[in-house]
Amino acid sequence: MNPFNNPQIFSADLNSVSDLEFEPLENSYRSVLYIGNTIFFAITGTVALSIYFSVKDELPYFIQVAAAVLFFTLLIFSFLSIHFGFKNKAFAVRQQDIFFQTGWLWKSKTVIPFKRIQHSEVSQGPIDRMFNLGKLRVFTAGGSGSDLTIPGLSFIKANQLKDFIISEITTGKVSYEEE
């Protein structure tokens, strides 16, 4: 390969992220999130209540109210963000890279070229297992901030994606010129 091969590229020719058609996560993942969130708040709620009953005589009234308001605000906000944020969770795979976008109010969109992936992993939590879902993680050398986690894929698809990525990074040192 000629290392000095460096043809000019016009910006209009670049495949644009904004034109990318993102694929949604499995619908059942919404249920996973709801169930997970319910369990989380059930546990924290129980702990909070048991603490509350043991110290309520010593707490001023407004702190009790504030704590309750805080708890329910967090609870409502977390459910809302699952509800409205779900449709923003989506991924896209191109020939040479993988995208994931997420977030309801605070949004983010990350892209990792296959070339930069160090290794990858498919994992499945207990609730995922009930719905036959999996979670794909890819690791880069850029530290945890640049790692990508795509949850809510069907378990089969997660594994297919992982196999595809791994085959790309081990065999393919494909460049645009070769296509």
Binding site: W106, S108, K109, T140, L148
Partner: peptide
């Protein structure tokens, strides 16, 4: 290594974003 676009609700309304570059 990878790049990331981030938007707060305010930035989303104003069509703005933070751009983050991750290196090793």
């Amino acid at each position: 290594q990878s790049t990331e676009i981030k938007q707060t609700p305010f930035q989303y309304r104003k069509d703005l974003a933070d751009f983050i570059v991750h290196t090793a």
